[in-house]
Nucleic acid binder design. Structure first.
Length: 308
DNA sequence: CAAATTTGACCACT
DNA sequence: AGTGGTCAAATTTG
């Protein structure tokens, strides 16, 4: 049913996606062996660069996916000026003047924290039918000063109250933080230890991958229309039979650069476990593409929260 | 005091 | 009519 990629979703899109993902996997494999050789020392920089590239690949992939959904998905929230419905006289940009998204394929993430490194501003909260917890609405802090159209919705999961289901809409056009981390070597990493939500600093590079592992935690990127998010967590373990074995999934996708600072994993632990461990376990994007990154052996590592 | 959050109202969509 | 997404005034926070 879900026409994630409408007919138009040309195979070139898909091919591109596949290329990017395969590259991600290749890099992850390299990284894994690298880190297992000599955890923690001078190669860490190289490892981070690889990670940056991996993240970029995945971001690109998700972007492609987004563009094959509805154009709106990548163009961001509509502000009601799409012209087809006359606004009320006198309601300029119109309070409540918007178009409800429908049928969009937006990346949805299950994560133990709402933080993702971007500066968000909450603009609403609503009780949602059949949900125990309200849904919170965030837009990018730079909506007005930089015209950034990114928004996200955060909702605590009914079944896993410690986990948040975060749905992203639109893409960041702001320069608040790095998107795909590109390892800017001449910035002093020490100034980058502030979580991205702090943005009083005028410098756009609030923090880049600094010394933290890229998303150390399992997330599940999924199609927002799949309702059973809880079962999805287990669901997306499968589905690799389609030619994407062992894809290292991780939590940086089209929008956010994850702020791991608040997540319960120390820098130290980075060197202690197999490299791909912090790259999560599952990605499940939509009905057409389910990548599950083989569930890695977390022996000795405590995952952020036990999901089951 | 500026920026962020809260909250009720408004409106589109189903 | 019910529900969800957004706006914006009021309030809170730093």
């Amino acid at each position: 049913m879900a026409n994630a990629c409408p007919e138009g979703a040309s195979s070139s899109h898909v091919n591109k996606l596949i290329r990017e993902l395969l590259r991600g996997r290749e890099l992850a494999t390299q990284l894994q062996s690298l880190l297992s050789e000599s955890p923690g020392d001078g190669k860490a920089v190289l490892a981070e660069q690889m990670l940056g590239e991996i993240m970029r690949s995945f971001s690109e992939s998700i972007s492609v996916m987004g563009s094959c959904g509805s154009p709106e998905a990548s163009e961001g929230v509509m502000s009601g000026d799409s012209g087809e419905s006359p606004k009320r006289p006198g309601s300029k940009e119109g309070r409540g003047c918007y178009k409800r998204r429908r049928g969009l394929q937006s990346p949805t993430v299950i994560a133990p924290t709402k933080e993702d490194g971007y500066a968000w501003r909450k603009y609403g909260q609503k009780e949602i039918l059949n949900s125990k917890f309200p849904r919170c609405y965030y837009r990018c802090t730079h909506k007005y000063d930089q015209g950034c159209k990114a928004t996200k919705q955060v909702q605590m999961m009914d079944d896993h109250p410690t986990m948040y289901q975060i749905t992203y809409h639109g893409q960041h056009s702001c320069r608040e933080i790095m998107r795909a981390p590109q390892m800017i070597p001449d910035l002093d990493p020490r100034e980058s230890n502030v979580p991205g939500t702090h943005h009083h600093d005028s410098k756009p590079q609030t923090f880049h991958q600094d010394n933290r592992p890229s998303n150390p935690f399992p997330m599940c990127i999924k199609d927002e229309q799949r309702e059973d998010s809880a079962s999805d967590l287990t669901d997306c373990k499968s589905g690799l039979d389609q030619g994407f074995p062992d894809l290292p999934g991780f939590g940086n996708f089209s929008e956010p650069a994850t702020d791991f600072s608040s997540w319960p994993l120390s820098d130290d632990s980075f060197g202690d476990f197999p490299a791909t461990d912090f790259m999560s376990r599952y990605i499940s994007i939509n009905d057409e593409f389910h990548f599950a990154c083989g569930k890695l052996d977390y022996s000795g590592i405590s995952s952020p929260r036990e999901l089951a």
